[in-house]
Design a protein around this nucleic acid. Sequence first.
DNA 1: GTCTATACAAAGATAGAC
DNA 2: GTCTATCTTTGTATAGAC
Lengths: 189, 189
Amino acid sequence: MAGETRERMIEATVTALQHRGVAGMSFTDILAGSGAARGAIYHHFPGGKAQLVAEAAERNGCEVRARLAALPADSPQGVVAAFLELVRPVLAASAAGGGCAVAALTVGVGSGGDDMTLRQIASTAFTAWGDQLAERLTAAGLGPDAARDLATTLIALLQGAHVLCRAAGDLEPFEPVARTAMTLVAHPG
Amino acid sequence: MAGETRERMIEATVTALQHRGVAGMSFTDILAGSGAARGAIYHHFPGGKAQLVAEAAERNGCEVRARLAALPADSPQGVVAAFLELVRPVLAASAAGGGCAVAALTVGVGSGGDDMTLRQIASTAFTAWGDQLAERLTAAGLGPDAARDLATTLIALLQGAHVLCRAAGDLEPFEPVARTAMTLVAHPG
DNA sequence: GTCTATACAAAGATAGAC
DNA sequence: GTCTATCTTTGTATAGAC
């Protein structure tokens, strides 16, 4: 079926991005992970690696955003608690060698033209996540300014926990971060 | 003088790590940045890239730890404020294309033997930073448990801000994070 | 200790048959 | 639309002269 192979290649790229990053991943990984042939890459992605990585990161960014949009908005505390439970398994995967596919676009890239495009994609995704989270927090009754600050902080904590958990190889660094996040929402602004 | 070239190579590696990461950096960068000849690398670092990267990251980790040790300990609020002012210029460099050399060891590495060693080095550095920060906070009067949680959270916020600021290309994401960190220390535990 | 030259492998990118 | 084969570049690693 048309687009089937292309789809599998994008999925494989998301996984490769999480595990090895932009510079660390190779087409060999993508081909092994998707079962596609070598020439198929440039058939589906004429822009080469840059295009493939860009599409994979955008895909992953939208998926995460959708999951944030599905958070309950009963109370600010409830939103933060649900957010923490949502990211816990993701961080567990990070500790096991995974990571954030969007964050991968920000490291290991220089100042070249294509690299700036990738950074832009990451920035857009992070902004979208923050906006979505802030929307949930305001829907739960938090003031607009406090919601924005808290949302950005939660995204930063998530990314920081990715780095720390990946280094530690377990979820241990996440626990104090989660405790702090809960005390945060108890004393906004 | 003996060790002069070796020193410059380590310095160049720290910079390369910050800008390109482990997989993204190459010996070409290190040679250009240190003025050394190609063969000099394996003369000073028989272990090749893994050894060079490991030593550079350990060096950088110790330098950061020393700067954390120099923080004043007048009050918990004072420690956090001084920490934020300490990291602000670092994050500005990150926004301009730099980054955290230690965090670079956690991404873009697989599950190989050398890679696990690098992850271990990063983990050790992060733990040392957290311990040092917690020590300052307890010296300023905070309880041991609250100090540990807050210290780990601040390190996570720092790493998260690195990712966000690098993606955004400016310091803007750091401001709400800094505001939140100050409100945090006003309501410990 | 420092340099030049080079071997060897891996990765990205293409061409062309089917 | 998919596959095999290959070109080119880059990067790690090594050998050996000075």
